[in-house]
């Protein structure tokens, strides 16, 4: 239970970083932290006490996996979500570089041409 709570704490920390920090690099770090907290949560969903990796190796009975193996689906989901996170991160960093090129600053409060 405490682990689920820690995932939530991580999520809230990421959101705080996203909202309170003005530096756009720190905002990006905030987004990444929230994403990883969700990934952690997903892995915890599939976890069970004394579980083994859901991979069939040589000399292993299939029933052993069914009895002890952790749920493989959340792990597949986490992998997909990590890949998506990588894509979003690359896009964010490149937009961030372009923003610096145009505005000469990483401070979000000075990047405010659009308003209203």
């Amino acid at each position: 239970m405490i682990l689920y709570f820690l995932a939530l704490v991580l999520f809230v920390m990421g959101l705080y970083c996203l909202v309170a920090k003005k530096n756009i690099i720190k905002k990006i770090i905030g987004i990444v932290i929230t994403e990883y907290s969700i990934n952690l949560f997903l892995v915890l969903v599939g976890w069970r006490k004394g579980g083994i990796a859901p991979i069939l190796l040589k000399g292993m009975q299939k029933s052993e996996i069914v009895e002890k193996g952790v749920d493989p689906l959340p792990q597949a989901l986490v992998l997909t979500s990590i890949v998506i996170g990588l894509g979003v991160l690359a896009l964010m960093v490149s937009i961030c570089l372009r923003l610096y090129e145009k505005y000469k600053t990483f401070d979000m409060s000075e990047i405010n041409r659009l308003r209203g």
């Binding site: 996203l18 979003v88 896009l91 964010m92 937009i95 923003l99 405010n112 659009l114």
Partner: peptide, 16 residues
């Protein structure tokens, strides 16, 4: 770029 970055941050929160 500014609009895109704002959209990206908020869209990222939505996806999360």
């Amino acid at each position: 770029l500014e609009a895109s970055f704002k959209y990206l941050i908020l869209g990222g929160v939505a996806s999360t």
